[in-house]
Design a protein around this nucleic acid. Structure first.
Length: 279
DNA sequence: AGAAGGACCTGCACGC
DNA sequence: TGCGTGCAGGTCCTTC
């Protein structure tokens, strides 16, 4: 399931392959829940536009477009272009493929590019979302975990009564963290997932911030975690799943102390932790 | 207002 | 063998 490192890997890979190219044709599947903007508006904004840049914000892939002079699908704003937002949801893939490669099942959008390749959005479970908007340097709903300061991080959780695990998953506080990296960072920081966020000490929160950043950066370096069907822009799997200490290992032994790993539900999500290493 | 829980959706791993 | 069941979870929406 794509979280910050997986989305970053895909965004970087797609950027390298498509920036500077023009979108010549757009096809969409007609499955309504995939499209947060009307499909006609997406087609109108994308067709003929040039891709300037592809980047990650939180778990969202932001494709910056140079606006066409005659586009009327979005309100006018002459100083800026448009943005195409891609959220991969659970099983979404954004692939750059040659047109002769057969379309995978569950393909929901195909952008034919001036360079000859296609940018394809494929999503079996259809939790992913596509939309377009006026460019205003999309910032996402929460703070960016890779660059947040110590004081800002500590302030996010002050007075919060929900479990620290649930707080990490809340995208309006911190965006980009999902179930895998929440469990992994809490394990590495030695903190129980059910602890009330507002009752963690400053020292514990600083440890959590440090471990979260380390685990995210390490995962980016390894191309993300491939569980379920995550792949990068070339369809290649990541390697961070081999480094998981707790996620997906319920019933197994802790790799640090040998104790049995416990499985519970926190914030509606399966949560795995070590009862000895996490106090 | 903040927190909690269900709905959405499909593929896959099970068990009988 | 084949079928049915349950589980996975990011985000949105409703409820408390």
């Amino acid at each position: 399931m794509p979280e910050l490192p997986e989305v970053e890997t895909v965004a970087n890979g797609v950027h390298e392959r498509v920036h500077g190219q023009r979108i010549e044709r757009v096809w969409t599947s007609g499955k309504p829940q995939t499209f947060k903007s009307p499909e006609s508006e997406i087609a109108e904004v994308l067709t003929g536009a040039r891709i300037e840049r592809v980047r990650r914000v939180g778990k969202t892939i932001v494709v910056s477009l140079e606006r066409k002079a005659d586009s009327s699908a979005l309100p006018r704003n002459d100083k800026t272009g448009a943005e195409f937002l891609v959220h991969l949801g659970m099983t979404g893939r954004l692939l750059v493929s040659a047109p002769e490669v057969p379309l995978p099942p569950h393909t929901h959008a195909v952008l034919s590019l001036s360079g000859g390749n296609e940018l394809r959005f494929v999503d079996a479970r259809r939790f992913g979302r596509l939309s377009v908007r006026i460019a205003d340097a999309y910032g996402g709903p929460g703070a960016e975990p890779l660059t947040i300061s110590e004081d800002e991080f500590v302030a996010l959780f002050r007075g919060r009564k929900l479990a620290i695990k649930a707080a990490l998953l809340n995208q309006t506080l911190l965006h980009g963290v999902g179930n895998i990296y929440a469990d992994e960072s809490l394990f590495r920081a030695g903190i129980r997932p059910r602890r009330q966020a507002g009752r963690l000490t400053r020292a514990e929160l600083l440890r959590l911030r440090k471990e979260l950043i380390a685990v995210l950066k390490n995962a980016i370096r390894l191309g993300g975690s491939s569980v379920s069907d995550y792949v990068d822009a070339d369809g290649v799997r990541g390697f961070f799943q081999l480094e998981h200490k707790v996620y997906g290992r319920a019933g197994g032994r802790c790799r640090v102390c040998g104790a049995g790993l416990k499985k519970i539900v926190v914030g509606g999500r399966t949560t795995v932790y070590c009862p000895v290493c996490q106090s």
